[in-house]
Simulated scan of single mutants.
Amino acid sequence: METSKLQRIINWLIDGARSSGGPAEMIADVCEHLVEAGLPLWRFGIFIRTLHPEIFGRNFIWRQGKEVEVGTVDFEILDTPEFAQSPLRIVFEQGLEVRGRTDDPDSKRFPFLDDMRAEGVTDYVAMPMPFLDGSIHATSWTTRHPGGFSDDDIATIRAIMAPLARVSEIVSLRRTAAMLLDTYVGNRAGARILGGQIRRGHTDTMQAVIWLSDLRGFTALSDRLPAETVVEILNHYFDCQVASIREHGGEVLKFMGDGLLAVFPIDQYVGDTAHVCSRVLEAARASRASVDALAIPVGEVVERFRFGVALHVGSILYGNIGGGNRLDFTCIGPAVNLAARLEKIAGRVGRTVVASEGFANSCRQSWRELGEFPIAGFSQAQRVYGLAEEAPVVMA
Rank of each mutant, 00 (worst) to 15 (best):
S315F: 04
R224I: 02
D133M: 06
A189L: 05
G377V: 01
A283D: 05
Q85P: 07
G271E: 10
A227L: 11
D133R: 05
S20V: 04
T122F: 05
E54W: 08
R188L: 13
E54M: 14
A138V: 04
L34N: 08
P392H: 13
I61G: 04
F329W: 12
A381F: 01
G217K: 08
S135W: 05
Q7H: 14
N320C: 11
G249W: 02
V171Y: 03
L194P: 03
I55C: 14
I193R: 08
G186P: 15
L34V: 07
A191S: 12
D123I: 05
I14C: 06
H202E: 14
T156N: 02
A84F: 10
P146Q: 01
L387D: 04
I160C: 03
Q7F: 02
N361R: 15
A191Y: 04
L234N: 04
I345W: 03
Q197G: 12
Q365Y: 05
I266Y: 08
A24D: 09
R304F: 00
G57C: 09
K66S: 15
V68P: 03
G16L: 02
G386K: 02
A340H: 09
G358C: 03
A84P: 05
F44I: 01
A381R: 03
A286G: 07
G314C: 09
I245Y: 10
D104A: 09
E282F: 00
T176C: 06
G217C: 04
G259Y: 07
S140L: 07
V242D: 05
A227F: 03
G323D: 06
M206D: 06
P128E: 05
I198E: 08
M256W: 06
E93I: 05
G100H: 05
G347L: 11
I375A: 10
C31S: 09
L317P: 08
R192V: 05
G358L: 03
L51N: 14
I154Y: 00
P81L: 02
V291Q: 09
I296H: 00
R279I: 10
F238D: 02
E300R: 11
A227E: 11
G299M: 01
V309M: 07
S86K: 12
A346G: 11
A243K: 14
R288D: 07
E76R: 15
Y385V: 01
F110G: 12
D239G: 13
V276A: 01
R348S: 15
E54P: 10
F56C: 15
N337P: 06
Y184H: 12
G299S: 00
N325M: 08
G250C: 10
D204G: 06
V68I: 02
L13F: 00
E76N: 15
T183Q: 13
S4L: 12
F83D: 06
Y385C: 07
H202L: 06
E251I: 09
N11D: 15
K108I: 07
G190M: 01
T50G: 12
R174Q: 13
E247G: 15
W211S: 13
G323H: 10
V30Q: 10
W141C: 03
C277E: 07
A262V: 10
G147D: 03
R174K: 13
K66T: 13
V276S: 02
R101T: 09
Q365V: 03
A155Y: 03
H137K: 11
E69D: 14
E25S: 15
T183S: 13
R348K: 14
F47W: 10
A381N: 03
L261R: 10
A17Y: 00
G71N: 09
F218D: 08
